[in-house]
Design a protein around this nucleic acid. Sequence first.
DNA 1: CGATTTTGACCCGCGC
DNA 2: GCGCGGGTCAAAATCG
Length: 371
Amino acid sequence: MFDLARSLQLETTTPKEETNGSNLVVFGRKLSVKEETGSLVDELNRVSEGNKKLTHMLTAMCESYNALQSQLVDLMGKNKPEKFELSPTKKRKSESSNDDDDNKNSIIGNSESSTDEESYKKPREEIIKAKVSRAYVRTDASDTSLVVKDGYQWRKYGQKVNRDNPSPRAYFKCSFAPSCPVKKRYKEALMTSVLLLQHMKVSIITFPHLKWKQHQVQRSVDDQCVVVATYEGEHNHLPPSQMEATSGSSSCVQRSVDDQCVVVATYEGEHNHLPPSQMEATSGSSSCVGLSSVHAGSAPVKSAGPTITLDLTKSKSCDEEARNHSKPKMNSPEIKQYLVEHMASSLTKDPNFTAALAAAISGRMYSTNSK
DNA sequence: CGATTTTGACCCGCGC
DNA sequence: GCGCGGGTCAAAATCG
């Protein structure tokens, strides 16, 4: 079915082939061709059965994930309205751009994560978490640019060093400020998710769109290539990249000191303009500029592993389309199938996982055979 | 020279 | 009340 099957076959059959090959040389005259073929066929059948079971397990995992996600969205939807009205968006004096509460109330929460243990500690966090969506992006290890191409220009206005986190926390404002109130900050990611993804070597990408106000991206601790981008809130405008094409407009970048790979960038506020790279492009015939963020269905896979390039540069029309179809797409059989295959192929690239899996399967086979 | 980044200080909220 | 941490400000430094 997929790489997992092939990998498992390789894991299990390759050594045997070597052994059998030597046996054929040494004892070849003792073993008949039929016996050899029969044993190989039996082995193949056993591995195939194991593959089927694993396929079912992965499918069940995906379905459970979708179910949990739906539950989470429902819970967020129940808790959202009063919180938006009761809680200020920002704690500091002049920064309060709360006149967009109408937009907040109309947000369709594509809340995918919001599983942080601190999600319900503070009112402000409740607001944010209610609209959190997180994109797990696996990037090439050699790619240290950490650019999440959202099409906007950002200006760094502050940086904080966290005692526990060697990576500094940076704060960005939209370059169109003060007319545009959007801000962005790097924060710690939910490390459990990151570590899980690192272990699984899986890239799961949600469908962020330009209406979201905030955005978090964080690299993981280990020398991995998982980038977690969390999107919160909504923009009230198109990215400036649609207003004029400026190369390298994306500034959502945080390089870690020791090649750490997970970055969290949080957006606040709503852009009231297009991204520079798209300001000019809107005059063109195509209204979908640089729409490569939703690559879940055709994620470019690099040699280092499955990679999904997070490029949020796109027009509003595409954004609307993505918002309208993101959920159905995620639940569509094609996406499910893709996720299953993607997860499986990613899983097989983890030697620890494949070794443990092979051990478990072999152990189960031996136990069943011995009975 | 204007825009951007750096960096230390400050403000504010929260927990003890 | 105090300390800590998150977030912001603003002057200085740097860059193109």
